[in-house]
């Protein structure tokens, strides 16, 4: 239980044109834990999620990042992915020329437990059913012409197929209808079943957070973590918003 899965220390991030975004973040996610990162728009939540996979749009200006106690600060995006970190994108891109099926095959090859032909097919079919996705999507180019909801489902499909050690979910539920949110929750619940995996949820949808097992909550305001706590923080924000925290951050800046 006490094994650290993901740890960032004194973690500072700027855009490539040197605008500071995140300031000295410290955060540890242990195996079996689910954390939530909340904050007002523009706080840097998505930047944090994306930087965990070394998005070239950002650069680390200070600090380091550890995964299973290994320093991965210098590792490239694909190497971090191969270690078992998964990012569910808030706005997944279209990639014409690559079919969803070929893409999944290639991605699964890099997973910790690669699946061979038959097993791959079997698992894929099961998950398609769970997510209510049609078979014919597999032959279409990756995300090309997919609706917002379909893209989110395809992200979830990848999460469940790849079965990574650590999942970072960026606004996984935004833009989904009630049925689709229920499907997502089913997927997340399934992922949470083991003690070995960790999860970071970036969200401001109180509704889905209330229906999940949450271990810790972090509040990010203006690029700084201004509060850490348990799920009671979710309740507070639900009632009062981020005002208290924003004032706090304001004070901190003086």
């Amino acid at each position: 239980m006490s094994d650290n899965l993901l740890e960032v220390k004194n973690y500072s991030v700027a855009s490539t044109d040197n605008v500071p975004i995140l300031h000295s973040l410290n955060l540890t996610i242990k195996k079996g834990e689910t954390h939530v990162l909340m904050g007002p728009n523009g706080a840097g939540k998505s930047t944090f999620g994306s930087s965990l996979l070394s998005n070239p749009a950002y650069k680390l200006t200070d600090g380091s990042i550890f995964f299973e106690k290994e320093n991965i600060t210098e590792l490239s995006t694909d190497k971090r992915a191969k270690k078992g970190i998964f990012l569910s994108f808030q706005a997944p891109v279209e990639i014409p020329g690559i079919s969803l099926y070929s893409f999944l095959r290639a991605a699964v090859k890099n997973a910790e437990t690669p699946l061979t032909g038959k097993l791959f097919r079997k698992k894929l079919n099961e998950i398609l059913k769970v997510l209510d996705l049609k078979q014919e999507y597999l032959e279409r180019d990756l995300n090309v012409g997919f609706s917002g909801g379909e893209r989110k489902k395809v992200e979830m499909l990848q999460l469940l197929m790849l079965s990574p050690k650590m999942a970072v979910l960026d606004e996984t539920d935004s833009g989904l209808d009630v049925d689709a949110v229920n499907i997502m929750l089913k997927g997340i619940n399934e992922f949470q079943q083991t003690d070995e995996k960790g999860m970071l949820i970036i969200s401001h949808n109180m509704h889905i957070l209330n229906r999940l097992k949450i271990d810790k909550v972090h509040i990010l305001v203006k690029g700084r973590i201004v509060a850490d706590g348990g799920s009671e923080l979710i309740q507070e924000i639900n009632e009062n918003g981020f005002i208290r925290f924003e004032n706090q951050a304001g004070d901190g800046n003086v």
Binding site: L53, S76, F89, I95, F103, R105, A106, A107, N110
Partner: peptide
């Protein structure tokens, strides 16, 4: 860059991405 980042975030490096494009085109 955005698209390459997406592929890399799934562990697919540039060489694998090229292969993937070929595979997808053939299929």
């Amino acid at each position: 860059e955005d698209r390459f980042f997406y592929l890399k975030s799934r562990g697919i490096d540039e060489k694998a991405a090229r292969q993937l494009f070929l595979d997808s085109a053939v299929s």
